[in-house]
Structure formats: C-alpha cells, structure tokens
Design a protein around this nucleic acid. Structure first.
Lengths: 192, 192
DNA sequence: TTTCGATTTCAGAAACTTCTGAAATCATGC
DNA sequence: GCATGATTTCAGAAGTTTCTGAAATCGAAA
C-alpha cells in the first residue's frame, strides 16, 4: 500500500497519462490557472482515480505546499471533489468525470471572477461620468460594451445554471445545423 | 497639432476614458494578453479615434517599444486596423468598433492558439498509446475530451466564421428565450 | 487532554513575463 | 543614392507569478 493510487476501474496507459498531463498543463493559461494546477487536474481526470496529496506529489514531483494549494483551488473551481475512505485519515481527491460539467464549472467561475467585476466597474464609471443632460454624446461605445457583457452574462447563466442539459442540447443543435459554408468545407465533412 | 488625438466624432469624457482603460486593462488576463495591450485597446476603442504611436505613448505613459509591440499584437488579433492619412508619414491605428466583431476576433484567435494545438497533441497521444486491440479500455476519458473539444471547435467555427450575423442572431435568440429562473430575476428586466 | 498524522499557510527563492530605451531597420521624398 | 523620420527589435531591468519546504494548525482517536 505504498505510493500507487487505487484504480477505480480502468487501466490507462502511463504514456497516455504523461502526455495528457503535459498537454493539458500547457492549456493552463486558457483557464486562467497555473500550469501545475492544470496538471493536477489532468492527472485526476485522465486516470479517474481518487488520489491523496502524496500520490499527487510523487506523480508530478511537486512540493507538498504546491499540491495542497492546487488541490484546494481545484475544489474551489468545483472540478474536483473530496472523497473519504472509511478507516483512513487521509483526504482523497477525485476529478469530475463529465466533460460538460467541467466546462460549465470553468465558465461559471471565470464569469464570476472576471466579467462580473468588470461590469460593476463599468456601471460605476458610466454613472459617475456626467449622467446629466449634456452627456448623451460619448456614451455610445460604453453602452454598447455594457450591453454586450450583460447579454453574455445572461447567456452564460442560462448555459451554466441549474438547467444542466440545456447547454448540451443547444450546442449539439447548433453544431449540427447545416447551412453557411465554413472555412474548411473541402474534404473534411463529419459523418452525420 | 501637438499631441492630442484627432477626434472622429464624439467627445468622450476624460474620466470615462481613464476608468475604462483601467477596468479593461485589469481584464487583460481574460483575453490572455498583457495589461498594457488591453489598455491600448481600451483607449482606442473607447475614444473611437485613430491614433499614432506617439499619441498612445503619451496617453498611457508607456515606452515606444511597448506601444509598438502592443499595437502590432492588436493588429495580429484583428481588433485594430491601420489607417493612413494622406500627406502624413505616420501610421494611425483605429479599433474595431463593433463589439461583436471584437468578440469574434478574440474567440477565433484563442481557439487558434490554444485549442487547436491541444487537439493536435491529444490526437497524437491517443494514436501513439497502443491503438491495437487490447487498448479499448482506458481511452474513454481521452475520447470524451477529444470529442468535446472537436464539438467546441465546430461550434466556434460556425460562430466566428464568415457567417457573421449568425452568432448575433443565435445569442440574442437564446438570451431572450423565457423559461428557467436566473440569478437576478428581481427587478432588472430589460424592456423588450 | 494528549498524541500524532494530515493539511494548510507563508516567507523567501526561482522562474517567468513584461517593459524600457537605444540602436537597427525600413520606407519615403528629394 | 542620400537624408529624414517612422517603426521595429532586443538585451537587460523591473515587475509579477509560482514554487518550495519548514513551521503552524487542524482534527480524530485513545
């Protein structure tokens, strides 16, 4: 019962784990998180195993502090959950396995952290900048931007809110709709 | 004809410019660009003016090198265009004014830079990791992720491709659909 | 209450990103 | 081809983020 993680169901080839961890880690910036945090998530996702801090530490060769911080942050993002083992004092961590849930969690968090505060700022700025009668001129672009962000927020709320399958449905629908010619129409049609 | 920029149409209050530049600059990370680059974009967008390098330099108090790099990067992203003035050797830069175009440019670029390469990596990894007969077990999560990313790519292509108004239409439609209760239902209904 | 292993925190070190400013490059008009 | 002025590049400086590891904290069991 040394280091190895306990497998829940499937034997993923080690080179696949390594490759996925590396590729996903590089993606970290897309999410607005650090490389290591993305790597920890990659490890938990691709293996599907529940791991304790030490498992993560040795698998990725990172310090205890870093592993702890990264796992906590992933919990905050809602893409990893804590799991206890009867008769074991360690915490185990498991990644959400449904890609759509992962995506929704990410969108939700990023909106919350990045768009919402921006909108607050923009409203403040607009309201502060002469909301009297003489101010009807220069607000066009500000207003357009605010309106756009609010629209986006509403859209995201809908996708990401309690109506989980809503997004899946809408996306599938839109993706399969025929019509307009896309960039690569040439030879690469998907088999319907 | 010293430093001040030439206004094309509207007198935006200076405190609005400053506020917007700061708020938008903080957003830089959302886009995966530097704070300064976002500030330059903010300045050009909110004023609507075409500015030369020196205008940007003095407005934001940044170095020539930084201004030059940021403007170039914004050109690459396709959210700013070059404009010449007859009889003037300087280059002038003007921000795209349509928020939807800006959004589409950002999505297009980020997909190109961050999702496409990831997909290439993932395909390589999967194909390399025993695509023989015995490999049907551990590929589930990998396959799910690849499929998801491909779906997302197709969706983004549609939104972002030549069929410009498509996104606007779809989004408006989805946003206005009644139904599920959203976070702030209380008092803030949009006047239809 | 004490003990003991697990977890979190945090100050400083390391790694990485962005910025400056001067020099090199480029393009235009003469 | 040369002069002039705009633009780009780039090496090192400044600034920011991330990581480590040891110490503090937490919490379950005896």
């Amino acid at each position: 019962m040394a280091k190895p993680t306990r497998s829940s169901s499937s034997p993923v080839p080690p080179e696949m784990v390594d490759g996925f961890v590396e590729a996903w880690g590089r993606m970290g910036s897309v999410w607005g998180i650090s490389r290591t945090m993305a790597e920890v998530h990659a490890l938990l996702y691709i293996t599907g195993d529940a791991m304790c801090t030490d498992d993560v530490m040795s698998a990725l060769e990172i310090s205890r502090g870093n592993a702890s911080m990264s796992l906590r942050a992933l919990l905050d993002w809602g893409v990893v959950t804590r799991a206890h083992r009867r008769g074991d004092r360690k915490d185990y961590f498991q990644a959400e396995q449904d890609v759509w849930s992962i995506f929704r969690a990410i969108v939700r968090e990023r909106m919350k952290r990045e768009v919402d505060p921006l909108l607050v700022s923009l409203h403040e700025i607009r309201d502060r900048s002469g909301d009297g009668a003489a101010s009807s001129s220069g607000h066009d672009r500000m207003d357009e931007m605010i309106e756009f962000l609010e629209m986006t927020t509403r859209l995201a709320d809908r996708f990401v809110g309690p109506s989980g399958p809503g997004l899946r449905l809408a996306a599938t629908l839109l993706a399969k709709t025929p019509g307009g010619k896309s960039k690569k129409d040439s030879g690469e049609e998907k088999s319907a």
